[in-house]
Amino acid sequence: MSSDTIIRAVGVAKRYRIHAGAPVSLHETLGHALRLRRPPRQWQEFWALRDLSLTIRRGEKVAFLGRNGAGKSTLLKLVCRITPPTSGYIDVEGRVASMLEVGTGFHPELSGRDNIFLNASILGLTRRQTLERFDRITAFADIGAFLDTPVKHFSSGMYVRLAFAVAAHTEPDILVIDEVLTVGDVAFREKCREHLTGHGQADRTMLMVSHELEHLVRVATRGVVLDQGQVCFDGPIADAIDHHRRLRPAEVARG
C-alpha cells in the first residue's frame, strides 16, 4: 500500500444466506447428519457485495450512497470486522472505531462513569487513554451531577449525549458512522457535526452512511454510490449525490 492509503479493498464479496421457511433447528441438522444426507437447500443466496474494489486515503471523508440493500452497511461492517468477507480482502491501517449505534455496551444499571470506561474500552481505548479524555467526554455530554447515577435514570437525551460523547472522543484513525447522527436535539446534533468537521479532524478518515443528504454534503468530501453491491459512481460528494438522485428519484423524494 502506498503511504497515504489507509483502506484498500480488493475483490470483496459478501454473501448472505436468507433462510426460507422454518428456521434451521438442531433437530433438522442432526436428522440430516444421522441419515448422511446433505440438507436440502433451504436458503436463498443474497450477494450484498460483489467484487468490490476501493482505495481510501488517509483523511478522506467518504460517504456511501445507494438505495436500501445496495451494500452500504455491509461494507462498513466488513471494515469494522463485525462480519468476514466471503471472498476478497481488505487491508486496513490503524485503529478502527465503529459508531453503528450509540451506546453499544452501555448497561442501564451502571453509573455514567462506569459506562464511559466500559464503552471506551470496547471501542478500543486503554484505561489511560480514557482517563486523559475523561473531562472532555463529560464536558461534551454535559451530564453534570449525574456522572455517578445509573444511566437507567438518565433522560433519553442525556443517554445519547453521553454515548455519543464517548464514541466521538475515541479518536481512531478510521471512524465508521452509520446513521447515528440523528440522535439528540437539534442543538446537540449541530454540536456533533461541528465536532466531526472541526479542527484536529483533518487526518481522521471517516466512512459514513446516512439518509440525511444535507448532512453528508457538510461532512463528506467524497461520495461512493453503490448499486447491487458494486461501485457505480465514485467522485466529489456533490456529484455523487446528483448521481444518487438520478438513480432513484422516487426513493430519495420519499426519504
Binding site: C80, I82, S98, L100, T104, G105, L123
Partner: peptide, 11 residues
Amino acid sequence: ANHTLITKVYL
C-alpha cells in the same frame, strides 16, 4: 445476551 456487542462493534 450481548448481541449488540456482536453486531454493532468488533471485539
